[in-house]
Design a protein around this nucleic acid. Structure first.
Lengths: 214, 214
DNA sequence: GGCCTAAGTTGACAACGTAAACATCTAAGC
DNA sequence: GCTTAGATGTTTACGTTGTCAACTTAGGCC
């Protein structure tokens, strides 16, 4: 009898990340509400309670996804910023676009990232710091824009809030679209607007940024 | 023996609306995810499956809330529009503000209204028509604004989309706040921005509307 | 080489959404 | 005014879920 090539699988080896990945994959096409830990466990091929060695609860899994999300978002934004340093106008638009694109590419993470603000941020300190860092990326840019006279001279939270509204609004509406599987009704004006938004998010960002231009 | 003063309670009389009301009350302070039909039934004082005579499923209850929501929203917007007819600038701002205020006053309905777009709009025709009507309120206003030269002359879906982004973004972020029960961190810039937004949503609306002004 | 501990499993529990069969009330038609 | 069909509410049951406690396995450290 040949040597057993399949090594012992009692220990999975990377179960924590497997759960996060499987959950993200699921959440791309369905809501957090309907996610079943047991179903994930079945997919991965472990027992129905294996995840308890890695996540204290279902919400803890979601929090882990959100933390991952904040870190990825921060990276994406930083990269966009470094890539377009020459002209502040371009920088700002590209950062906004990077935010939106990341959100629609990773709707499940963005959803968690936003939902996490609602529910249990106090319970997960790492989540709080991750969220602060992400928002600082925005306020720093706004401050710079005010300093160089690119934006109107108003309080930072006011301008940051307005721009957050814009990118979050776009991301949120586009996620609606990405989850509406087949409902691209031609006669639905709301769907039309979302379609328009989807095909050229940069145009809308550029438009809305005008409102805080000096 | 005196006549029985308590009439028969076998039939509740208004169970459908009671379920909607109880669900809304619950959803004001918690997520749809955690809502339990059996708990609602217990509160109302009926059996755990009584709702099946009125709602085919849990999602159907949510859809009913969303339909209610769309109708209420339409009413609120129409009223705001009629109340401020004199100056188009005022009209438009007030309609946006009415949208936002309604959303934060009825977060559970707004949430359902938005979530319904994601999940099962195709299954509930009444939901589709209700959502179309609400969006038409916006496009009609935009068309008028373009016609009188108040807005820049661009495609309606483009401008409507941009303004939808704004009011939905504000509403969405403010709902985040309203559900963050105690977390008004002073040192959290994101919370600061939301607080600012909350105290004067009109200012942000007026600011963002500038971006599509002629 | 034996043990400690992290990682995974088993079995159990209460709660949930849903379904089918049953009970009760209400109103419409004769 | 009685009958009866249909609407409304109940009971019982099933499969699934999140979570817990107790158990088993495996790999690294002395």
């Amino acid at each position: 009898m040949p040597k057993q090539t399949v090594v012992s699988r009692y220990h999975h080896g990377n179960l924590r990340q497997s759960f996060i990945d499987a959950a993200c994959e699921y959440l791309k096409h369905a809501s957090a509400e309907s996610l079943s830990l047991r179903e994930l466990a079945r997919e991965i091929g472990v027992s129905q309670t294996a995840h308890y060695r890695h996540f204290k609860s279902k919400n803890a899994l979601f929090a882990a996804i959100a933390i991952d999300g904040f870190e990825l978002l921060h990276k994406v934004i930083s990269e966009a910023q470094e890539k377009h340093e020459e002209d502040f106008s371009v920088t700002f638009t590209e950062v906004g676009l990077a935010y939106v694109n990341w959100a629609i590419t990773n709707p499940e993470k963005y959803q968690m990232l936003h939902d996490s603000l609602l529910i249990d941020i106090a319970q997960y300190p790492a989540l709080l710091t991750a969220s602060k860092q992400s928002f600082e990326d925005l306020t720093n840019l706004i401050e710079k824009g005010i300093a160089i006279g690119f934006f109107i001279p108003r309080a930072v939270p006011e301008l940051a809030g307005a721009m957050w509204v814009c990118v979050h609004g776009i991301a949120s509406l586009l996620m609606t679209r990405s989850k509406m599987l087949s409902a691209a009704d031609v006669d639905n004006p709301a769907a039309q607007a979302i379609e328009q938004l989807s095909q050229d998010p940069r145009a809308t960002i550029e438009l809305l940024v005008q409102s805080i231009r000096r």
